[in-house]
Computed example of a mutant assay.
Amino acid sequence: MQSKATITALGTYTPERVVDNDYFESIVDTSDEWIVQRTGIRERRFAGEQEFTSDLCVAATEQLMRQYNQSVDDVDMIIVSTTTPDYAFPSVASRVQARLGIPHTGAIDLNATCAGFVYGLCMANALITAGMNRKVLVIGAETLTKATDYKDRTSCILFGDGAGAALVEYTEDAPGFLSTYIGPTQGEGGIHLYRTRHSAQMDGQPLTDHGLMVQNGREVYRWAVKTVPSGMHAVTQQAGLPLSDVDWFIPHSANARMIETICEKSGFPLEKTLMSLEKYGNTSSATIPLALEIGIREEKVQEGDTLLLYGFGGGLVHAGVLMKWAPGQKD
């Protein structure tokens, strides 16, 4: 079924507090040089003590409305991707509805970790193309610094907070979505990246049960550099296009070395790849909209460009979207 959806607006938000690599030298055995060489990250943003994921979602949506002169009053579905909700329930999406006063909308959270924003876009496209909705607000937002183990020198340097919001709307003549792809889940790999709540084991294996993120970076790296290149080709082949037709690749900004290897294995030029990690670190489901916003601000991404968005992370899950960038165009 041909898509009937397109992205008409984008907004982002990052907290005010900037934390550079020097901060971590005082709490763990590391250095700015070590962090940059291994991750590409130079700084990240920390949410305030009383600043939570719903606050970032609202701020990103408000920026979207200002920048694109858009209203969200007629949004009929809100999808928020996050692993760090304000509460177990109510959902972050319902808090966004209340804060923005959107009168007639559904609201749902999803947890696909660092693939969450792309999963949300896939869902929005499907809902609109199936005729269930006409205007969906998709938000990827995290306050990961509230769930980070600052005794783990290999992971605490990675994470930051941020949010990105996109409006996905019905269109008849100029769909922006060329193809969507949700890759096979590898649930047995969940042991390599998790955050516990109640269970102290997974598949019979004991877990570190302190309520903070735990990551086996080496195993996640191996999985990503093997999985993502084939997924990139799958999503472009589904649209009947070669990977060389893509103007900009926008992967989850997990680690610069990882992205370099993915580009090398897929045959895609690193210079046509957009990342947000240098200034914002790993913001999980927010990295892709943040990177897209950077590309737009730096006048790299132009109207009509073909974009390949690809998210991957804990689960282990991955998903891709191929689209034409044409904000503001709708019937």
Results as ranks from 00 to 15, higher is better:
residue 328 G to E: 11
residue 192 H to W: 11
residue 144 L to I: 11
residue 112 A to L: 15
residue 293 E to I: 00
residue 101 G to D: 14
residue 219 E to T: 02
residue 162 G to E: 00
residue 166 A to P: 03
residue 291 A to E: 03
residue 268 F to A: 00
residue 116 G to R: 01
residue 36 V to G: 07
residue 234 A to R: 14
residue 318 H to G: 14
residue 242 P to I: 04
residue 140 G to E: 09
residue 143 T to W: 03
residue 249 F to Q: 03
residue 203 D to S: 13
residue 140 G to Q: 07
residue 257 R to H: 15
residue 208 T to W: 05
residue 19 V to D: 11
residue 36 V to H: 04
residue 21 N to G: 10
residue 324 K to L: 13
residue 174 A to W: 07
residue 175 P to V: 00
residue 177 F to V: 08
residue 34 W to A: 06
residue 21 N to C: 09
residue 49 E to K: 11
residue 222 R to T: 14
residue 277 L to C: 11
residue 91 S to H: 10
residue 17 R to D: 13
residue 185 T to A: 12
residue 209 D to Q: 10
residue 179 S to N: 14
residue 61 T to H: 07
residue 73 D to Q: 15
residue 221 Y to A: 04
residue 278 E to Y: 12
residue 101 G to P: 08
residue 75 V to E: 11
residue 331 D to L: 01
residue 294 I to C: 06
residue 310 Y to Q: 11
residue 75 V to D: 08
residue 255 N to C: 05
residue 6 T to L: 08
residue 33 E to Y: 01
residue 112 A to K: 08
residue 303 E to M: 08
residue 282 N to P: 10
residue 300 K to P: 08
residue 298 E to G: 10
residue 97 Q to T: 07
residue 92 V to W: 00
residue 2 Q to D: 15
residue 23 Y to K: 01
residue 236 T to K: 07
residue 294 I to W: 14
residue 177 F to D: 12
residue 327 P to G: 00
residue 135 K to C: 09
residue 2 Q to T: 13
residue 156 C to L: 00
residue 301 V to W: 06
residue 133 N to K: 15
residue 196 T to C: 15
residue 62 E to V: 02
residue 107 A to P: 15
residue 323 M to Y: 13
residue 316 L to Q: 05
residue 329 Q to W: 02
residue 301 V to G: 08
residue 44 R to K: 14
residue 120 G to I: 05
residue 329 Q to A: 11
residue 205 Q to W: 05
residue 174 A to T: 08
residue 26 S to Y: 06
residue 54 S to V: 03
residue 310 Y to I: 09
residue 230 S to D: 15
residue 183 G to V: 03
residue 279 K to N: 15
residue 116 G to M: 00
residue 59 A to Y: 05
residue 331 D to R: 02
residue 33 E to R: 14
residue 20 D to A: 02
residue 58 V to N: 00
residue 182 I to L: 14
residue 106 G to M: 07
residue 19 V to M: 13
residue 90 P to D: 07
residue 252 H to A: 01
residue 179 S to P: 01
residue 149 D to G: 09
residue 163 A to K: 01
residue 274 L to K: 03
residue 71 S to T: 12
residue 215 Q to C: 12
residue 293 E to H: 07
residue 232 M to N: 08
residue 259 I to K: 05
residue 232 M to R: 04
residue 79 I to G: 09
residue 214 V to L: 04
residue 179 S to D: 10
residue 321 V to T: 10
residue 303 E to L: 03
residue 91 S to K: 07
residue 291 A to V: 06
residue 115 A to Y: 03
residue 182 I to F: 09
residue 108 I to W: 14
residue 315 G to D: 06
residue 2 Q to Y: 13
residue 225 V to T: 05
residue 99 R to G: 06
residue 262 I to G: 10
residue 179 S to H: 08
residue 220 V to H: 10
residue 51 E to C: 03
residue 84 T to A: 11
residue 192 H to P: 08
residue 17 R to C: 09
residue 311 G to A: 14
residue 280 Y to S: 01
residue 165 A to D: 13
residue 65 M to L: 05
residue 218 R to Q: 13
residue 249 F to K: 05
residue 280 Y to A: 00
residue 259 I to W: 01
